[in-house]
Simulated assay, not measured.
Amino acid sequence: MNNSLPYIAKDAKPAEILRAGIEAADGPVSLACSFSLEDVAIIHIAHEAGLELGVFAIDTGRLNEETYEVADALTERYRLKINWFFPRHEEVEALERAEGLFSFRESLDKRHACCAIRKVEPLSRALKGLAGWVTGMRREQSVTRGELAPIERDELNGGILKINPLINWSEDELIAYTEAHRLPKNRLYSQGYRSIGCAPCTRAVKPGEDVRAGRWWWESAENKECGLHRR
C-alpha cells in the first residue's frame, strides 16, 4: 500500500478534495452520513461532480424522527442507496439492564461505553472492505477538530484514507450552499440546533455558544467526540 497522501492546495474546493481522496484510495469509498447539513452537502457535491461515493449510516436506536425524514428525502431526490448499520442488540440490552436508560449522563466513561456500543462498533463493521471514508467534519466546529487535514490516513481503522472535504468551510458557507441548492434540511436546525446526534444527547444551542455546544452539553468542550473520530 502506498502510504503517501495526495497534495492538496490550501484553497482547494470540497469537490477537489473529494476527488483527490477517492482517486488516492484506489478502492471503494463511502460517506459516513448522519444526515447533517455537512453530509447532505457532500452528497450533492459528489452527485454534481459525478464521483462514485457510497453512503452508510449508523442507526443508534436513538435518532430523532427529523433525522429519518432527511434520509428519506435524500433517498428520493438522488435515488440514493443508504447502507444502514445497527448496534448489536445483545450489547444494548445488557447495557440498559445493568446501567439503566441514561447512564451516559453519569460520567464520561459511561458515555463512552454507550457510544462504543451504539456507534463505534457498528462503524468498524461499516468500514470493512473500504479503501477510504468521508466525513463532514469542519475545523471550525470545535477545539477537537482544529488539527484536521483534508486527507488523512486512519491508522485506527486499518490505515484506510479519511477524507474531510469541508474542513475549511465556515458555518455560513455551509448554510449558503445548502440553501442555494435547496438541499434537504433537518427541521431541528430551525429550532436552534446546530449539530445533531442522538436525541437524548443533543439540544439546541444558546446565543453565543459554539456549534457543538448542544452535544453532550454536560461535558467539557475537549471531550465532545463519540469515538468515531479518535485521533
Rank of each mutant, 00 (worst) to 15 (best):
L95A: 08
Y78C: 03
K81P: 00
L74H: 07
R88G: 01
P87Y: 06
E96C: 02
E93I: 06
K81W: 00
R105K: 15
A98G: 05
T75K: 15
Y78Q: 07
L74M: 11
E91M: 03
E93H: 05
L80R: 03
A94W: 06
R97M: 11
E96S: 02
E91C: 00
G100M: 01
E96F: 07
L74E: 07
R105H: 12
N83H: 15
N83E: 15
R105S: 09
N83T: 14
E76D: 14
E99F: 14
T75C: 14
Y78E: 07
R79E: 14
R97E: 14
K81T: 10
A94M: 09
R97N: 14
V92G: 09
R79I: 02
F85I: 05
E93P: 00
S107M: 02
L95E: 06
R105E: 14
E96A: 02
E90D: 13
T75A: 15
F104Q: 12
K81C: 00
F86S: 06
E106G: 05
A94K: 14
F85Y: 15
V92P: 11
G100P: 03
L101Y: 10
K81H: 05
L80S: 06
Y78G: 02
S107F: 01
E90T: 07
R88T: 04
N83S: 15
A98N: 12
A98S: 14
E96D: 01
E90L: 02
F104H: 14
T75G: 15
E91Y: 09
L80N: 08
E96L: 08
A98W: 00
E106S: 09
S107G: 01
E99V: 03
K81G: 01
A98P: 00
R88K: 13
E76M: 11
L74G: 05
L95N: 07
E106N: 13
R105M: 13
F102E: 13
R79S: 14
L74V: 08
E106D: 12
E99M: 13
A98M: 08
G100I: 01
P87E: 07
E106T: 09
V92E: 12
L80C: 03
I82L: 10
T75W: 06
V92M: 15
